[in-house]
């Protein structure tokens, strides 16, 4: 006979109030301290463009931009983002005009199921912001935190190569 024994459940802590800029809009939000940035986006704000592939920082599907840097939203608690400027895939297009990377992803067919796509796009924007990745091999290496189980890597690489110059010129986040 074997058993797993429960530990006691305590009362839940209080919500915290945070302010942040989300896709260009200032937001004031009440968040539980145990809510991740990813769950805040997906479940509380219905911004389901950011995906959850693992919840453990192992797949990159949840990649968003925080102050222009790419992070795994599943590895950040929402309360840690007080004052931050956050861009998700929903905020990449401006005035109804697709971001050059979004356009390149369509033209190069850089996805199949689309579930890794938001993460790939935000990650690639972050990559452009970092000012690195000047060769194919560098792009390959620096995009390796974003898994694509459909295996669309060849086309993802081609799309990023196509769009990187425009991203750097435009300096868009």
């Amino acid at each position: 006979m074997s058993a797993t024994s429960p530990t006691a459940g305590a009362g839940l802590p209080a919500a915290h109030s945070i302010s942040l800029t989300l896709n260009g809009q200032p937001r004031r939000l009440e968040v539980q301290p145990w809510t991740t940035l990813l769950d805040l986006l997906r479940e509380q704000l219905q911004l389901t463009g950011s995906k959850k592939g693992c919840d453990h920082g192992q797949c990159g599907a949840c990649t968003v931009l925080v102050n222009g840097k790419r992070i795994n939203a599943c590895l950040s608690l929402a309360v840690m983002q007080d004052g931050a400027e956050i861009t998700t895939v929903e905020g990449l297009a401006e005035d109804g005009r697709l971001h050059p990377l979004q356009q390149a992803f369509i033209e190069r067919d850089a996805f199949q199921c689309g579930y890794c796509t938001s993460g790939q796009l935000c990650s690639a924007v972050g990559l452009a912001n970092e000012g690195r990745a000047h060769s194919r091999d560098e792009i390959r290496e620096l995009m390796s935190g974003n898994l694509c189980r459909c295996g669309a890597y060849t086309n993802i690489l081609a799309a990023i190569e196509d769009a990187l110059p425009a991203c750097r010129e435009g300096g868009r986040s």
């Binding site: 895939v89 297009a93 697709l98 979004q102 369509i106």
Partner: peptide
């Protein structure tokens, strides 16, 4: 090009848990 491409690159394609 895929007809569902624009929905997928803008995060508007909705999956079962969304």
């Amino acid at each position: 090009d895929r007809v569902d491409g624009p929905l997928k690159v803008t995060g508007q394609a909705q999956y079962a848990g969304e």
